[in-house]
């Protein structure tokens, strides 16, 4: 491709025409990484860790999926806002497309975190759901994601819908630090929540490995699905351009 001494022009890929084939090449790589890392992380989590913890039994192992999806749900929101801000400032078409592609994967991660959390909550706390600060703010995150997607598809003019939904995403960013910090207090007497403190300080290292590797795998999965969705959005929005009409997959 490029000789090593040649500078890569990154801005080249901000054009959908150049980004489309690049994304197509990257997607299989991210899928492979995702399958390998999620497989390794879950294998480690299920077979290399203790069956019984100090207070929890086997069911604690849902942590590998729960923590990974919850982290990705919050992280993808930040990524989505970053794309939306770049779009607002530089008026680049591709950034808005990336933002809306990220929103759907973020929503999926939020739903996985809520569902696995409910299952875990039923077995350990004794309830599927409680209006605890962490759970409630996480539900609000889901609604913001859905609101973003709804707003985007409610306005027909893509330029306007991109800007309106980007603003919504920016305002909604306020909830992410709240989810992360609001219920974190070290004293169990004072902790005004049912959800535990989010801390990795007292996690045994094999459990930590399972959690971190699975999270990395979820991240690669997010890359793969976001790029796939971005390619679809590009095709849809640029369908009247000449480069799209020349694509092999369009003319089949």
């Amino acid at each position: 491709m490029y000789p090593l001494n040649m500078k890569i022009n990154w801005f080249k890929y901000s054009a959908p025409m150049n980004f489309y084939p690049l994304a197509g090449k990257l997607i299989p790589i991210f899928w492979l990484l995702a399958i390998a890392l999620i497989g390794l992380g879950l294998y480690w989590g299920f077979f290399k860790t203790a069956d019984i913890l100090n207070d929890q039994k086997q069911y604690y192992r849902i942590i590998y999926v729960h923590v990974a999806s919850a982290w990705m749900a919050m992280w993808l929101y930040a990524v989505m806002v970053a794309w939306a801000m770049i779009g607002l400032i530089f008026n680049t078409r591709l950034s808005f497309m990336m933002a809306s592609a990220t929103a759907v994967t973020g929503t999926v991660m939020t739903v996985i975190a809520l569902v696995t959390g409910a299952i875990w909550g039923k077995t350990s706390w004794g309830t599927w759901w409680d209006w605890d600060p962490k759970l409630t703010t996480f539900l609000i995150l889901l609604f913001i994601y859905i609101g973003y997607i709804a707003l985007q598809s409610a306005i027909d003019d893509t330029r306007r819908s991109d800007k309106a939904s980007a603003l919504l995403a920016l305002v909604g960013l306020a909830i992410v630090p709240v989810i992360y910090y609001a219920v974190n207090c070290p004293d169990p007497n004072e902790c005004a929540s049912l959800h535990q403190e989010s801390s990795l300080k007292r996690v045994e290292s094999n459990i930590l490995i399972g959690m971190l590797v699975t999270t990395l795998g979820f991240w690669m999965y997010s890359f793969a699905t976001i790029l796939m969705r971005a390619r679809n959005i590009i095709l849809e929005r640029e369908r009247n351009t000449s480069w799209v009409s020349k694509l092999e997959e369009v003319n089949r």
């Binding site: 019984i52 913890l53 207070d55 309830t127 535990q196 300080k201 007292r202």
Partner: peptide, 17 residues
């Protein structure tokens, strides 16, 4: 009407503890 148990952020194998 309802009693819920909390668990902390400690994930240590029982034997090690």
């Amino acid at each position: 009407d309802e009693v819920l148990a909390k668990h902390d952020s400690e994930y240590m194998p029982a034997e090690l503890k």
